[in-house]
Nucleic acid binder design. Structure first.
Lengths: 132, 132
DNA sequence: TAAAAAGTGTTATAATATAACATATCAAAT
DNA sequence: ATTTGATATGTTATATTATAACACTTTTTA
């Protein structure tokens, strides 16, 4: 079955719904707290749902924050490589359009005798709203 | 006092020495274990030393692995931005020369109305030795 | 040499994530 | 339709990563 058509289970859908409603990335235990009324009772239920959602590209983990966000792109094709813009002022995170990044990084890597497979890029700075 | 001339305390030097000898990034509790004979007894002593070493640019944290490595560059000027090549086969990590990356990312960020300050880039793939 | 700043040692605890195991559900291929 | 194999679930316990709080010491600097 194609990844994009994957049918989600209850727990997976519950976690994804929450992340899609959220304006900011959420931490695992915040997700746990916010989904208790939907029947999720233990950390593992959250982590397992997240694992699956990440695997199919619906959710990304922001490594430096230990937090999770729904992918902003429809039919995300990058279940692996990720690029974020993280506002240090308001903590909002958006995704940078990948476009040429993988090929750019592949070229850079090659110069170091390294075979590129995927990447995670976290850019810190100030978002539009917070610059005003 | 200039950061590059910073004088290290005993604990800081102990942790840095260990990381510089290591061929791979180390985790905090591995550092704790390996420095017990040098008098470091508690996690906080490790984390405090790491915090300082990271601040002055002598050590970098690999966020996706929760591990730490000594900076490979003499007189590292990037206490903030970091770029790694992480081998998925042997777990060795090397640093990618930054050169144009900050300005490249600044330009990319600008197109999304985002003011670049610093970045963390983690590229996964296969190192030279593991390609053979 | 006093005051301020930075670091230490220690105990306790918070925050993040996984192991293990028994059971349940679902898809698809006989 | 029923077996079968893969995937998901619920649960308890525990591992891993990191910080809070506090009393004290050392170093820097004005």
């Amino acid at each position: 079955m194609a990844l994009s058509a994957e049918k989600l289970t209850n727990n997976q859908q519950t976690v994804l719904d929450l992340l899609e409603k959220s304006k900011e990335p959420l931490k695992a235990y915040a997700i746990l707290y916010d989904t208790q009324k939907k029947g999720i009772k233990a950390p593992l239920q959250v982590y397992r749902a997240l694992d699956k959602l990440i695997e199919i590209g619906k959710v990304h983990k922001i490594e430096s924050r230990n937090s999770y966000m729904a992918c902003e792109h429809k039919n995300c094709n990058s279940s692996t490589s990720t690029s974020f813009l993280i506002c240090e002022t308001c903590d909002q995170v958006s995704e940078l359009k990948q476009k040429n990044l993988p090929s750019y990084f592949a070229k850079q890597s090659e110069q170091a005798d390294f075979k590129y497979a995927k990447h995670n890029l976290e850019i810190y700075g100030t978002c539009k709203d917070c610059t005003k």
